[in-house]
């Protein structure tokens, strides 16, 4: 047997096993999962193909030497209208998706990279390290998230030039305690499992045990909180942008910033500059939340509900026996 095909087969089995709960999801959970995934995917496509999908650049206020009209109504030439700075609202939405996803993606990656290992080590080894990190993380968790993000953005703003990076770091620090807590608490229960002691009895080193025995049984919950946190992070980022501490207008389009600029427009009956970025925020946040909750209900065995086949006493019973008898 070719080993390559055997390996491939084994991988397929492992993958199918990992995704089995998703395939088996039923009812409301399935609906949430798919609606959330579709909405999120739409924004990912917007972000990835922004230059192709957007008619103009995010900060473009002229084309072919003509300056765009200020506050043009949605319609001809500018499907969603223009802003007070003459930029195209649609372009700001499309490029805004890019900014949001970049920042949130980076923040997630940083947060997981810091929070998960820290939670694993802290929970598994315990002792003074654990008590110290728990105290520190709890202190951070107790801080109002937005305030924390503002302070960090403010502190980093002068030394780090990339606005996306500043925002991502600020948001990372807000969410690290959550990953830490979830992972640590789960590790503490897994640590007492018999198979962990069995691994120790086999002579495995502590880091081997962490890697091979604890890690996989702990990370199952992480996708759920990561997705839910992503939804929350979008809100934090747009709030930062709204009060002027987010991604700077010169560095990228950002919906929160756009909404803040649009506040004054509304009084004069100009609705499109605020409505569309606002809608984009709501849609992305809802999409991520649906995805997270859907994942939660499918992965979490307590909430999991599978479609059962109703009992039917009158269903025909199996009658293969007759044939057996003939043979």
């Amino acid at each position: 047997m070719a080993t390559a095909t055997v390996r491939a087969q084994r991988r397929t089995v492992a993958l199918r096993r990992a995704f089995a709960p998703i395939a088996e999801a039923r009812g409301f959970a399935r609906w949430m999962l798919f609606a959330g995934a579709a909405i999120t995917l739409m924004f990912v496509i917007l972000a990835a193909f922004a230059p192709l999908l957007s008619p103009y650049a995010f900060d473009q206020y002229q084309a072919n030497g003509h300056r765009f009209a200020q506050l043009a109504r949605p319609g001809h030439g500018h499907i969603l209208g223009t802003t007070v700075q003459s930029t195209d609202v649609l372009a700001r939405i499309v490029y805004g998706a890019q900014t949001e996803l970049e920042v949130v993606g980076l923040a997630l990656a940083f947060g997981l990279a810091v929070g998960v290992p820290l939670g694993l080590v802290s929970g598994y080894f315990g002792g003074i390290l654990d008590r110290g990190s728990v105290f520190f993380m709890d202190a951070m968790f107790a801080f109002p998230p937005l305030l924390l993000a503002i302070i960090i953005a403010f502190l980093l703003g002068s030394s780090v030039s990339s606005g996306v990076l500043v925002a991502a770091i600020a948001i990372t620090i807000v969410y690290v305690p959550q990953y830490f807590r979830v992972v640590r608490n789960h590790v503490i229960s897994v640590r007492e499992e018999q198979y962990v002691e069995a691994a120790r009895a086999l002579g495995a080193k502590p880091f081997t045990i962490l890697r091979r025995y604890v890690f996989f049984n702990v990370v199952q919950n992480v996708p759920v909180i990561a997705t839910l946190n992503a939804a929350d992070a979008v809100l934090t980022l747009t709030a930062l942008g709204f009060i002027g501490y987010g991604v700077q207008p010169t560095q990228g389009a950002e919906w929160g910033y756009d909404v803040s600029r649009a506040v004054t427009d509304v009084a004069s009956g100009i609705w499109w500059t605020g409505l569309f970025p606002g809608l984009a925020i709501v849609l992305l946040v809802s999409g991520l939340t649906l995805l997270g909750e859907g994942l939660n209900e499918t992965i979490n065995p307590v909430l999991r509900r599978r479609a059962i086949r109703q009992v039917d006493f009158d269903a025909p019973s199996f009658d293969a026996g007759a044939e057996f008898y003939e043979a």
Binding site: E24, R306, A307, I308, R309, Q310, V311, D312, F313, A315
Partner: peptide, 11 residues
Amino acid sequence: LRLWYGTPRGS
């Protein structure tokens, strides 16, 4: 007496 459970894979 018959007592059957409904499950995803049948009764």
